[in-house]
Structure formats: structure tokens, C-alpha cells
Design a protein around this nucleic acid. Structure first.
Lengths: 205, 205
DNA sequence: TGCTATTTTGGGCATCCGACCAAGTCGAAC
DNA sequence: GTTCGACTTGGTCGGATGCCCAAAATAGCA
């Protein structure tokens, strides 16, 4: 039905370039993505890349931050459905198991972290995105009565990325393996009773 | 005084190339390191790079794995001087505080992880190196009576890299901040009494 | 039906890339 | 003193790079 007007197709090309950029960053590495690569994969002419974007760097940055924002904006919905640390951790690790560390999503995140190291503007954007994610996790932890929600959220977020990165090297570390260990991080605040405290590790598969 | 024989100077050039490779990987990113860059920084002719190494990739791989091996071979000496989880964690976080996440050492590790994603031989070498590190940490944890030494060591190692990566984006997360959280990971095995269990977070700065 | 703005094309620019090689230098062993 | 092997030089090769631009195609508006 859609009569693709010119402007609409232009926006579609732009969107497509952002999409293939995410895939290529994961596939080849941030600094190895080139103008022609992007154009070929998107099925457009190389000249179009610099028509829609001021530079390849700008395209990559916009693609990465956009994808990270999209993913993390949908992820915290996870926590809203969890009222206890154990249930939240369960959902979180389920989400974690959907990533092997070699999938485009995981690699894009780590590549973006490294690229932010060499690009101040990108660093600002990315640190804002993860800061917001951390604060949402901290809110959830606070509601669940976990001690030191801010510090715990920061370490938890970092540990998630670390596990993804290590899993790419040595597969075999599943969510079920890290669950009991990370679960120990979520200790209840002093004086508050943990709703579902895990004492031993007797977790039936 | 030293009469540098030709063969000696050759070995020195090779060593120097490996050294600047580590720095350049951290500075520009793995895939952005070029033959000319390496030669310029090392103060030699571009042709020398391909005389001493079969390819730039081979040079980068050897440089990264060598540096990782050197660093991790010296790090576990840390654990030998620690008989309790808390003391070991203290030493570990002290070591962690020496890295900002933006220093060449930290960046080299993460760049190497990502490069291993696209190079099977490199992945084999790196995963062997970190596996040995993990097993040493697990040994130490076992000696200290920590529950599930293997799983704990795996998550701990991953968390360390994750914290380094996140710290590069949002500084302000010091070792003192992550200490109480990571400390909770090191729970004593069931039936065994933790030597220095940290209950609350009342840790004097 | 023109007019105008937007999108698209294909090619061109200077620069850099990894890899290779013939010729030259040097030191050590004979 | 000569020979030999390891090391070094400077340059070349085909190809890829990011970015730019004049011209062509397209579609909404008058």
C-alpha cells in the first residue's frame, strides 16, 4: 500500500545504513568499518553514505548509541516484573543467556565502549546511557531492600558486561553457573529481611 | 660499552616492535594499527616489520598474548601473600586501582578479547591464558574456604574486566567502592567458618 | 506544466594500506 | 681475508581508504 515517497525512501536508506553499521561493527571491528563496506551491505552507492552522514565516524556513533538506547530502554521492563532480588536475577540471567558473547548485540556494546575511549562526544553519550541503566537497576534493588543499591548496581552492570566478554572466549559459563555467585552480591540491607534469601546453592536445575 | 652485535640489535628491534605494538593497540585500536605506524613509533624502516614478522596480525597477536602472559604471571603472586578472602580482595583491588580503564594495559586486554573474536588462533592462546589465571584464583579461593571456587573465580575474573571497562566510561568507581560488593561474592563454604566475614558495609575508608 | 528541493549516481581525488623484493650493510666464523 | 648468513634499506605493487562533487533522477508544490 505504501507509496514510497522520495523523502520516505531517503529516511529508509538512512535507517538501513544505521542498521548495517551495527552489524559491521560487531563483525569487523569499529575501526575496520569502511564507507564501501557499509554501502555494499546496505545495497546503496558509496556516495550516499556521506550524503546522509557527515562522516563514517558520525554514522558509527549514531548507530551504536541508538542501538544501545533501544536495547536498554526495553530491558528494564524486566525489572518491573520482578519484586524480589532472586526473581529479578532470574530474569536478568535469562536475558543474559540469550547472548553468547559472540552475537552482534554483545560485540557492539564492547566495541562501542572501546571506541568511546577515543571519542569524547561518544563517551559522553554512552556514559549517559549506561548511567541511566544503572540508576534503574539501583531503583529496583532499592525497592527490593538490597544493601547499597547504587554501588551494587554499578558492579552488577559491570559484571554483566564482563561475563559476556569472557563467555566469548570460554563458552560453557551459562547463566545457571553465574546465578548463585551473582546472587550473593544481592545481600539484603541491614535490619531488612531478604524476601528470598539464597543460603546454600541447592538450586534445582 | 656494550658492543651491539648485529643479531643482538635485530632481536632488540623485534622486541621494540612488540612493545610499541602494545601501546598502539591501546591507543588506536587493534584494526587501526598499521605497518608504517609501528615502524615510525619504533624508529625503524617499514620494511623491517615484515622481516621480523610474517604479517601485522601475527605481530599484534604475539605482542598482546606476550603482554597478557607477562602481566598475569606476575599478578597471582598477589594471592600467595593473602591467606584470607578479605586480604586477597584488598590486594586485588589495590592492583585494580592502579588501572583507570584508560591506561594501555587495560585497553590492551579488552582489545585483545575483541580481536580474539575474529581470530581462532588468537582466541585459543588468550583463552588458555585467562583459564590459567582463573584456575590460580580458584586454587586460592579454595584454600581460603570460599564456596564454589571455580564458579566464583570465573565470575570474579569477568567482573574485574567489566569494572575496568565501565570505569573508563564513568570514572569515580574506585576500588573502595567495589570492595564491599565484590566481598559479598566470597562467601565461605557451607559448614566452614569464614575467617573475616564482612557482615554490614561498615568498612572504614 | 514548469519550478524547486531532495535524493541518488558514478566517478575522481589524494592518501594510505599490507606485502613484497632486490640490493646493500654488517658481523662472525672459517 | 674471504665467505656466508642475518639484518636493513628504500622503493614498488595493486588495491582500498575517506571524502567530495557535478550532474542526473525523482517527487511535491505552484
Amino acid at each position: 500500500m505504501a507509496r514510497p515517497t522520495t523523502a520516505e525512501r531517503g529516511r529508509e536508506v538512512r535507517r538501513k545504513l544505521l542498521d548495517v553499521a551495527c552489524r559491521l561493527i560487531a563483525e569487523r571491528g569499529w575501526t575496520a568499518v569502511s564507507t564501501r563496506m557499509l554501502a555494499d551491505r546496505a545495497g546503496v552507492t558509496p556516495g550516499l553514505v556521506h550524503y546522509h552522514f557527515s562522516s563514517v565516524q558520525a554514522l558509527l556513533s549514531e548507530a551504536a548509541t541508538g542501538a544501545m538506547r533501544d536495547y536498554l530502554a526495553q530491558a528494564p521492563g524486566l525489572f518491573d516484573r520482578a519484586d524480589s532480588p532472586r526473581r529479578g536475577l532470574e530474569l536478568l540471567l535469562g536475558e543474559l543467556d540469550r547472548h553468547t558473547g559472540l552475537d552482534p548485540q554483545s560485540l557492539l556494546f564492547i566495541e562501542a565502549y572501546l571506541a568511546a575511549t577515543r571519542d569524547d562526544a561518544l563517551r559522553g553519550e554512552i556514559s549517559a546511557v549506561v548511567a541511566e541503566f544503572r540508576s534503574r537497576v539501583a531503583d529496583w534493588l532499592g525497592r527490593c531492600g538490597v544493601a547499597d543499591p547504587d554501588g551494587t548496581a554499578a558492579v552488577l552492570a559491570a559484571a554483566i558486561d564482563g561475563v559476556l566478554m569472557h563467555r566469548a572466549l570460554s563458552p560453557g559459563m551459562s547463566g545457571a553457573d553465574v546465578a548463585p555467585v551473582l546472587g550473593r552480591i544481592l545481600a539484603p540491607a541491614a535490619g531488612e529481611r531478604g524476601p528470598h534469601e539464597t543460603e546454600g546453592t541447592g538450586d534445582p536445575a
